[in-house]
Nucleic acid binder design. Structure first.
Lengths: 146, 146
DNA sequence: CTTTCATGTAACTTTTTAAGTGACAAGAAT
DNA sequence: ATTCTTGTCACTTAAAAAGTTACATGAAAG
């Protein structure tokens, strides 16, 4: 399939809302930063709203973060847009009458879960504030180089 | 896109080869355990062979592991079939003229890499032997329950 | 030495899932 | 009232992997 950039784009949206909080934040403007369409942005924002990360008001271009960016982690964002889907994909159609086919899903599944949790724990230790600050540092560093 | 089950199926193939090493191991037989087509199995086995995990001989149904299953880790298998592609997908098409769009790829990329590495380290601590033994334990447990 | 079975690989089709698009009802604001 | 915007639906396009068909070539047994 096409690869999902929802997580990446969602972090983008949240950072954008915080950094440009004093401007008019239409889905059109945000879309121009992500280089995607306004509908894609609005769809993602719907999901973020349903998961309590932002507050929006229909008709007005004024989305706000629902929490302090220090209290929003990459994990919160990941779970909001990707849910608890498996990170590593099990083949769920194996022959149950074979010793391997009949047991590998359960066995591999536990190791997949361990690995996924190790990754998600990392995300739980990074806040939106960290992302924003690092973006701003990178931006300053760019200017110095010129 | 369709979700890849290459990793899962590759572990399946390797465990199958080891457990049934005394039988004739045609791609057809292995495919029947994975419930896929022989061509898919042969394609995966080509990749595993190119990466030094198995040895095959054209025309004969006798694939062998190239190493002791204690020396093959889930990470070896993962890298063989998935390469070093990113685990979490960055949107690589963002507006470079925007503070967020111009820096988020680099910033998020490092956190994605940290998370990916945390997951892959887990895989590096699990051997094919562990998988095989756990499969056999699960199989015995099933029989007792009957 | 020929028949049978198997691999290895190429080319093509199907499936899946997310992005992208067009449309529009309804809310907000001047 | 007019204009802008959101929220959402329905549809199309894109991309990647699985699945399929085909076949040249190698192995092995009679």
């Amino acid at each position: 399939m096409r690869v999902s950039t929802r997580f990446s784009d969602s972090v983008h949206i949240l950072a954008f809302i915080e950094i440009y909080q004093d401007q008019k934040l239409s889905s059109e403007l945000i879309a121009s930063s992500i280089e995607t369409s306004p509908v894609v942005v609005r769809r993602l924002m719907s999901t973020l709203r349903e998961n309590g990360l932002i507050a929006t008001k229909k008709g007005t271009a004024e989305p706000k973060l629902s929490k302090n960016p220090r209290e929003i982690t990459l994990l919160d964002i990941y779970l909001a847009v990707e849910g608890d889907k498996q990170l590593f994909t099990l083949d769920t159609n194996t022959n149950p009458d074979c010793i391997v086919g009949g047991n590998i899903q359960k066995v591999l599944g536990t190791y997949y879960e361990d690995a996924k949790m190790a990754a998600l724990r990392k995300f739980n230790n990074v806040s939106l504030q960290d992302i924003i600050e690092t973006i701003l540092v990178e931006q300053k560093a760019k200017k110095v180089l010129k």
